[in-house]
Computed example of a mutant assay.
Amino acid sequence: MITRRDFSTLLAAAALAPASSGLAGAQSRPVARNVVLVHGLFADGSCWSEVIPKLQAAGLNTTAVQNPLTTLDDAVASAKRVLARQDGPTVLVGHSFSGMIVTEAGLEPNVSALVYVAARAPDAGEDYAALAKTFPTPPASAGIVFDGDEGRLTEEAFLRDFAGDLPEAKARVLYAVQEPFHKALLAGKTTVAAWRSKPSFYAVSTEDRTIDPDLERFMAKRMGATTIEVKSSHLSLISHPQTIADLILKAAGR
């Protein structure tokens, strides 16, 4: 487990070599016409249903990818297929695990900016699991169960550690549509880091019990992202949809 001193050292090291994206790249990016949203583990594309109408109301063509949750290669390919259908500059947004997808697929030429919502943000070739182990283990990890090669969260862990700030009735609906993930998905590593060349934005969930909030802060700092903090569970996109939509709109230059 990382100590406060270790965390400060990591942040200082990240600050010495920030990515070239962040605010500097934001000044020259084109105004986006499209948004592509990618979901992570324990969810499907419907998890963006609170954010989508807010983006559509602002005039953005918005598409939610149905991440197959099989392998990282499959997941990246599914996002790239959707990106290829977009006409013009596009903001690519990822929640949770799909930050891996954003990091890999974000180099597509029509991607104008990246948005990470309580998401993984590895460097090229980085072992994300090893990085995560340098921070406290989030409570949700203990709630993952497997049926053969398929993993999912127990209902107790889903309600308490994944969707902890949502009304129980709504959280139970989300639990009912939870998409199991394949073990092979977790073995994938990104080969590139799009955040090193694309303007990046990050929403930290300060009450997160699925990814440690200090790990989120570290990744956001390392990439030089425009960062906001949301007092939220892992599902800020549902409990605080206007805040997340506003960040996406900022990334879109709206």
Rank of each mutant, 00 (worst) to 15 (best):
L166R: 07
F162K: 10
S46G: 06
G125S: 04
A118Q: 06
A163M: 07
A14W: 11
E126C: 13
F7P: 02
D127C: 03
A129T: 10
A77S: 13
S96L: 03
A43S: 09
L215Y: 08
G151L: 09
H182K: 07
R160P: 08
G188S: 01
H234V: 08
F181K: 05
R152V: 05
A13G: 15
G164E: 03
T137E: 15
S96A: 09
K231P: 08
L159G: 00
P139R: 10
F146H: 03
N34T: 11
W48Y: 12
A142K: 14
G22Q: 04
A79Q: 00
G99W: 09
A17S: 15
R29G: 00
K80C: 01
S236W: 05
A171L: 01
A203Q: 07
E108A: 15
C47E: 12
A118R: 00
A245Q: 08
H240Q: 05
V115Y: 05
L249R: 00
S205Y: 09
A129Y: 14
D165V: 00
H95Q: 04
T9H: 14
R254S: 13
A77K: 02
L186M: 13
T134G: 15
P241F: 04
A220D: 09
L237F: 06
H234Q: 07
D127Q: 13
D161T: 12
R209A: 05
S21N: 13
H39G: 11
F162R: 02
A32N: 01
T154N: 03
E216C: 09
S112E: 06
L215V: 09
P30Y: 09
L237R: 03
D147H: 05
L249V: 08
T70E: 09
A113V: 02
L215T: 01
L10H: 08
G151S: 13
T210Y: 06
K133L: 12
L186I: 14
L237G: 01
S233R: 04
A252Q: 09
A118F: 02
G106I: 00
E207N: 08
D6M: 15
A57I: 14
E168M: 08
V51H: 03
V65P: 12
A58P: 14
R152L: 01
E207Y: 12
L237C: 11
A203H: 04
I52F: 03
V35T: 12
D246M: 10
D214I: 06
A119L: 03
A163S: 01
A245K: 12
G59F: 07
A15Q: 15
A84T: 03
A245F: 06
Q178T: 10
T226W: 07
E168D: 02
I228P: 05
A129C: 14
A113E: 11
K133D: 14
S236D: 12
L185N: 02
H95P: 02
A14D: 05
L69I: 10
T206D: 06
P68R: 04
K198H: 14
R120L: 04
A187I: 06
